[in-house]
Nucleic acid binder design. Sequence first.
DNA 1: TCAATTGGTCTCCATTAGAGACCATAGGAT
DNA 2: ATCCTATGGTCTCTAATGGAGACCAATTGA
Lengths: 124, 124
Amino acid sequence: MRLGNVDVPRDTCQLVGNILGHLGDKWSVLIIVLLRERPMRYSELERQIETVSKKMLTTTLRHLERDGFISRAVTPTIPPRVDYQLSELGREVMEPLDVLARWALRNSDRIVEARSRYDSDHEP
Amino acid sequence: MRLGNVDVPRDTCQLVGNILGHLGDKWSVLIIVLLRERPMRYSELERQIETVSKKMLTTTLRHLERDGFISRAVTPTIPPRVDYQLSELGREVMEPLDVLARWALRNSDRIVEARSRYDSDHEP
DNA sequence: TCAATTGGTCTCCATTAGAGACCATAGGAT
DNA sequence: ATCCTATGGTCTCTAATGGAGACCAATTGA
């Protein structure tokens, strides 16, 4: 793998791929973006995202916690209360994520065009 | 959704999420990175990636083509020859992708640490 | 004559995602 | 007194998705 003009050894490359893979799965980025605004409770995230199942919300949060992007604070009241917030690492990853999101935003027209071109070329 | 200090309307945000989603799936980034080096034939990509199944390689290539990141050139010889290469859009998306990959590279230690901390805290 | 090559598609099985029931418990409303 | 709601999950069952690999058509080289 190459980054800029640096050759990246194979196992490091796998790690990067792995991290990118996690960040790239269906809900991670969305959760990070939401938590950037402010810390949120589990149920709040659930309501904000709407289309996520409890199971996937839980597993995605666990992954993000394990990788150190968010922290999880339990208050053992009844009913229980669990707050999630971005960690320092989570806040830092926002920057490259923003770069990518801004690029997507700037170029969304071109992608939409490419798609309709492809679709009209391939359906007959 | 917010990017920097700009508020992004909901449907545009969905598009960005959608694009990020595609880029984030298991093989896309790897294929883009490989094609940055030089154009490659189907079988060459297959050999480079090793662990990808034909089915997934084909569907990922189709998605990338539909979104306009790569182009596909068929030479109808026997046996057939199909060349894939990055389009202009594909070359442009490398930049934000590089930013993210470099970040991952710089911070991989912290993530590895976070993981082992999490694992030792949660297994007993 | 036989094997190898290519870019897929197709089928069959394994893994993963999603929908939603369920839980324990307290406080508030009726 | 009794119900209802709220919370942060887990668990089960089903639907969708992913992977392994057989198969194909046709030509060239051994």
